[in-house]
Design a protein around this nucleic acid. Structure first.
Lengths: 146, 146
DNA sequence: CTTGATACCTTGTCACGCAAGGTATCGGGT
DNA sequence: ACCCGATACCTTGCGTGACAAGGTATCAAG
């Protein structure tokens, strides 16, 4: 009665698709937010959820390990701070090292975006590119069956 | 004697960085190229190497499995074709299904790019965002030391 | 006292990208 | 004749990030 979960192996693809595309973006997003001012983890979660139409939404299981990794590599530094409350918050700040790293990440992202745009732009024009000199081989060819 | 490979655990990061960022992009790139006309695997390798300043360069170990996956999911179809040569080429064409999928992918990519741009843009202005009605909590607060 | 929000965390699974390896054909060089 | 590099296809195994799912603890409402 209650086991009607999706047996369609190509329908929930949309989620995986989004996930794979966003890969690596999370780091860029987090560091970018931190580049303005310090934030604590849960706050980052909310900031990213509000910004960019939710496209950059990060899950807890993603964020916390990421923060730890970034801390280990010295890109950010953490500090517990109890501003009067019993439950202290863990604030993260960008280190100079992290700022440099962020620059690299940004450049890399920019390059990728440019590359993709360039590819999508040239798509209409691409007809032939230099390989050995053949031109009219693939264009007119209808000997294939099936 | 000969084991002096990079012991620097944060220096070759640039490659991993690029790799993780480009994740998922490959599919988009490949399908986009195929949306113009059919291509065979090795050809795709070269096309992607030439386009976009090499940012979208794909390795064989990536492309071939990807093509097989796309074929399995019905997004592309393959056909061996020996145009007179002993070694036939395996040509891939986009199926209608694949074209629709490509549309989705494109939209998703566009959304991500927009989201990122939006995030990077708002970075300077973000001061407070609505959570439950508190306004002057995070904004005016300079009791933090260190 | 149970529920939901806040706030931190972990383990295991999935899927992609790639290094590294393999096969086979073909055109040159020497 | 031989080898090398390009062409052209393929595979297995490792590394890695995203996430589902789970766990702990505080606190305010109901």
């Amino acid at each position: 009665m209650s086991e009607d979960m999706e047996t369609t192996p190509g329908s929930a693809t949309i989620a995986r698709l989004r996930r794979e595309l966003a890969r690596g973006t999370t780091e860029l997003a987090v560091l970018s937010v931190l580049s303005v001012r310090r934030r604590y983890g849960y706050e980052l979660l909310k900031v990213l959820r509000e910004t960019g139409e939710g496209v950059l939404e990060v899950k807890e299981g993603t964020l916390y390990p990421l923060l730890h990794r970034l801390e280990d590599s010295g890109h950010i530094r953490a500090s517990w701070e109890a501003e009067g409350r019993a439950r202290p918050r863990k604030y993260y700040v960008l280190t100079p090292d992290g700022r440099a790293y962020l620059g690299m990440l940004r450049a890399e992202w920019g390059g990728l975006v440019d590359g993709m745009r360039q590819l999508l732009d040239t798509l209409g024009e691409v007809q032939e590119w230099p390989t050995s000199g053949r031109s009219s081989t693939t264009t007119r060819k209808e000997s294939d069956a099936t």
